[in-house]
Design a protein around this nucleic acid. Sequence first.
DNA 1: AGGAGTGTGTAGTATATACTCCACGGTATA
DNA 2: TATACCGTGGAGTATATACTACACACTCCT
Lengths: 118, 118
Amino acid sequence: MSEFGEYVRQRREELQKVDPGSFSVRKIAALAGIEPSYLSKIERGQQPPPGERTIIALANILSEDPDALLAMAGKVSEDLQKIIRRRPRLFADVIRQLKDMPDHALLRIVREVRDGDW
Amino acid sequence: MSEFGEYVRQRREELQKVDPGSFSVRKIAALAGIEPSYLSKIERGQQPPPGERTIIALANILSEDPDALLAMAGKVSEDLQKIIRRRPRLFADVIRQLKDMPDHALLRIVREVRDGDW
DNA sequence: AGGAGTGTGTAGTATATACTCCACGGTATA
DNA sequence: TATACCGTGGAGTATATACTACACACTCCT
């Protein structure tokens, strides 16, 4: 079930084809600040996904969305959690309310709030 | 800094005054499924806040809001996280967008979505 | 043949999380 | 004076998290 690992490997190999020599396990691990063998194991699901710091680093290196990658790892970023914790009741209500709403409804909120009709 | 512990103790003692004999450390601990000495230490900040299960149990026993209590413990409930993880990009956007919005703006969203003008 | 770069296997470590178990001393009650 | 709660102290445990360190085998290049 280690969707995370598979995804990272796939994405890395994809980039490796375009720019070989820059996306080896060793190179990426070095950039992400971890050991190559560790990354290798993660990619093959032999180790669970790494910590938040490392996931975000990987996301940036691989030009992926950090929140999406964190989600694949079964996590929610600390900074989002912090926002929720400041006003737990309100955010809990909003999130639960939006739980089953279609994507376009969420997009509408983002748009309307951003455009300041509030 | 263990705001959590202090709050629980305060709330428990409050209820103890109204209904003595039903809100001792031992009674509450038993209901919450933990050892009395553990609860005692938590209330005095000698131990960090307990796990999510236990916090939610305490919230119910003390008639408190689980999300608020979890927030005091520096946590966000797993079920909220699960909702976010299903559509990480969308929810991340919504939450960050609402970060600095006043309470009434969030309330308005809750209300409007609930009332189905969507 | 030698070196550079590739991925991977084995073993071990440090720290945090979430608790339990038992025993002690105080107060109140009958 | 015994028995029944009350809170608490000290020590120990189980599991998870997030990694490191090092060595090995293979391929490609010159």
